[in-house]
């Protein structure tokens, strides 16, 4: 990879000494081969000696040697209770397939998926519904029903208010409760869908025992609501819930997750702490464009420079 032919765009106010240029790789840019923690995690899951770790009460979700058709092939992964996982990767990398498999909505052809220490095959759809929820990428509804009615079908019985204050604060949907779902704008509709999926297990989320899979929740949201959502996801995880979401905003994801999973062509390229996964080498090899990454205290700034040439 030639790295000399591009120069990160300089922002006037940015501390240039902290910015890492592509030519001078240092601590933040780590080679995956030296990335000890990532390799260790894989080894942990695969070795029988450590298999009891999978039944560890802190492990909410785990996955071993799972294959789904030709779309997904993942060796070993797990998510701990209260972990906030963001999954990134190019289109068609298998992110949605992974989420659907973990949510028990697609059967793995090979391997095992464990949820709360129980194999996925032992879960029934009905009991799963009270433990985990899923936001799918597309939802269709040709029916002209109001947002309020739409949400009421998915809310668990007997809630004092339809929309809990935290959700309202992040999603701001009470303004169009009486509007017709199909007439909302794309972003408004997406906020309603996020609310719907979280309402399904709201009592669990409030107790800090919920598990949620959100497939591209940022899709269509304006910048304010993108960050509000990322904060909501983080907030829910801090309460003890486990949330996994896919995203195309690497910069946002790297700063709002506990673990970052990087996927490519159905495989997990790297996973672990965002600073270790969102490295220049990793991102450039997976996304095939040039990145400039710099670190400001706890903030990871990731920018794309010199995108694909169209000539």
């Amino acid at each position: 990879m030639t790295t000399n032919n591009f120069r990160p765009q300089q922002r006037p106010d940015s501390g240039s000494n902290e910015r890492i240029n592509a030519s001078e790789q240092d601590t933040i840019i780590t080679n995956p081969k030296e990335n000890v923690s990532v390799k260790d995690d894989v080894a942990d899951c695969n070795s029988p000696a450590n298999s009891h770790n999978l039944a560890d009460s802190r492990t909410v979700l785990s996955l071993q040697n799972v294959k789904v058709a030709s779309r997904l092939s993942v060796e070993g992964l797990r998510a701990k209770k209260g972990e906030c996982v963001h999954i990134i990767g190019p289109n068609g990398a298998g992110k949605s397939t992974l989420l659907l498999t973990l949510a028990g909505l697609i059967d793995a052809d090979e391997g095992t998926v464990m949820l709360l220490g129980k194999p996925m095959n032992d879960w029934s759809l009905a009991t799963l519904a009270s433990v985990r929820t899923l936001l799918a990428q597309q939802s269709e509804s040709g029916f002209h029903l109001s947002v309020k009615e739409y949400l009421s079908f998915y809310a668990t019985a007997q809630q004092d208010v339809l929309i809990p204050p935290v959700l309202e604060k992040a999603l701001e949907i009470s303004g169009f409760l009486n509007q017709i779902v199909t007439q909302l704008s794309g972003g408004e509709r997406q906020r309603v869908e996020i609310c719907r999926s979280l309402l399904q297990i709201w009592p669990q989320l409030e107790r800090g025992e919920g598990i949620a899979f959100l497939d591209e929740p940022l899709q269509g949201l304006d910048i304010r609501h993108q960050y509000a959502l990322a904060s909501l996801v983080k907030f829910l995880c801090d309460k003890g819930n486990t949330l996994l979401m896919t995203s195309h905003d690497i910069a946002l994801s790297a700063n709002y997750c506990d673990s970052l999973w990087l996927m490519q062509k159905g495989r997990m390229v790297a996973f672990g702490k965002p600073q270790e996964v969102a490295t220049q080498t990793n991102l450039e090899s997976v996304f095939e464009c040039y990145f400039a990454i710099s670190k400001h205290d706890n903030f990871l700034e990731i920018q794309v420079c010199a995108p694909i040439s169209l000539e």
């Binding site: 949510a103 985990r132 509804s141």
Partner: peptide
């Protein structure tokens, strides 16, 4: 809300 949402809710 569609097939996947229905499946997800049991």
């Amino acid at each position: 809300a569609g097939e996947l949402a229905a499946k997800s809710s049991g």
